[in-house]
Design a protein around this nucleic acid. Sequence first.
DNA 1: TTGCTCCTCACGTCACGTGAGGTGGC
DNA 2: TTGCTCCTCACGTCACGTGAGGTGGC
Lengths: 274, 274
Amino acid sequence: VFGIGDFARHGRVSIRMLRHYDAIGLLRPAQVDPASGYRSYEATQLAELNRIVALKDLGFTLQQVQDMLNDHVDIDELRGMLKLRHAQLQAQIVTDTARLTQVEARLRTIEREGQMPADEVVVKQVSPVRVAELTAIAVSYAPEHIGPAIQPLYPELMARLAHAGVPIVGAPVAYYEDEPGSDGAITVHATAPVNVEPDDKYDFEIVDLPGIATAATIVHHGSMDNVVPTGQALSQWVDANGYRSTGYAREVYLDCPPELEKWVTELQAPVELI
Amino acid sequence: VFGIGDFARHGRVSIRMLRHYDAIGLLRPAQVDPASGYRSYEATQLAELNRIVALKDLGFTLQQVQDMLNDHVDIDELRGMLKLRHAQLQAQIVTDTARLTQVEARLRTIEREGQMPADEVVVKQVSPVRVAELTAIAVSYAPEHIGPAIQPLYPELMARLAHAGVPIVGAPVAYYEDEPGSDGAITVHATAPVNVEPDDKYDFEIVDLPGIATAATIVHHGSMDNVVPTGQALSQWVDANGYRSTGYAREVYLDCPPELEKWVTELQAPVELI
DNA sequence: TTGCTCCTCACGTCACGTGAGGTGGC
DNA sequence: TTGCTCCTCACGTCACGTGAGGTGGC
């Protein structure tokens, strides 16, 4: 029979933990002195404590451990809990591995440039959105072809939306697709988020833009004429951080004041790991 | 310029997070309406928010992020923080991988036996301890040779300790080593923790038992004559959970009442991953 | 007038760590 | 009498989530 201190030492847990497990009913001492409140434990309780520690080490909460040990879960629930934990651990390892790669990329940048990278790139999820759009075709993805193709579309789209009385509910988005069957030509889509159903009466398309499960994003400041270096920074980041690009980046026009150098745009490149 | 809701949507963070970042001074809104308290953000602040999110995603605390962004850390500190994070992430991945293996082992046991394993094995660290010891030699590690070799040592050790006036400060421990230059013979050590310096006057050895960095442990109930199945359960667990045994197990005699069937012993097998 | 967006408290989370202040037996 | 072990509160942790209760402009 052990005092709480000896029992804690043998079980490699803290005294505070034993008191906590007592308080929540997870592991009650074999004896409690009624006068002093001193707890005492029996040697056989060490097996019980080991069971608790083992389950806790797998990452289960104390509540889950308690349910498992008191047979509050049947075999199928138990299997389910283990499978869930299995999936969580796999996901955790995947994201930690990605983090590790990013930390390494930052360390390399520090060694090379003597300072922290500008931290501009964030990987996030982009949700689906319904937009009104006009399209045009550019002969290539080169900026000198894209710009002239897309620029006239926006004033026209805005005018048609205004004329149809359809309000814009978010920031305009541009996106690009390969023109099928054509050699290097690009379909450019100029869009603005709306909240209406498709209708033949409109002189623009209503399209549901799918979400992007994993998008590497960067904020571009200034005129879109100077977007190329920002786009390059984005693809370099993607390459250096264990991702691969899976398509053309969307452009979200967050702020488009008359002075072109004050524009703020977000580039959203769809990517996947490794 | 965005209201807090729009800004949160574009940054894929919650409104609550923006308020929190305002409260702790991490990201202040560009404007706050003095009358209503309404916050507003500028498009360019999205780059700032992205920087915060990127560093947070690497696992840094908000305090660390704040220090980094406000240049409260120089380049060497920054490198140090990144290297520390790198090491932490590696350690995290290692332990999560071990957890994953253990969850898989449990799932296999459930499929095979229709119930949760008895959860007896725990991996923990064993700290160094100073002991008084007597030794003997057994011709092999077989239980029928070990038992007769070690059993007489304990009464003798206790008697000599009592005679020397040296108090025992913990549970007795037995450990085993290959007898060098001999074919399969084992040196058996019967020990008890003490708190004295070595001295020629003692008729027992004072030895500092080293700690065990990684020990797989199991609690054995009952006489040591029946320890074999428990030892087998332990080595099966070690094999099934991605570890490898690196030596003989220590035996810690937690409770040794006169009735042999009430003994409680902990086996501590030194192991390493994979 | 009804929605919608926004506001400020303030409690809850999870598993303990860490004092503060005090007691009982050698 | 001094250490030592043990006791019971009770606050702090970290980054928000989640109401409660209320306000201002279309």
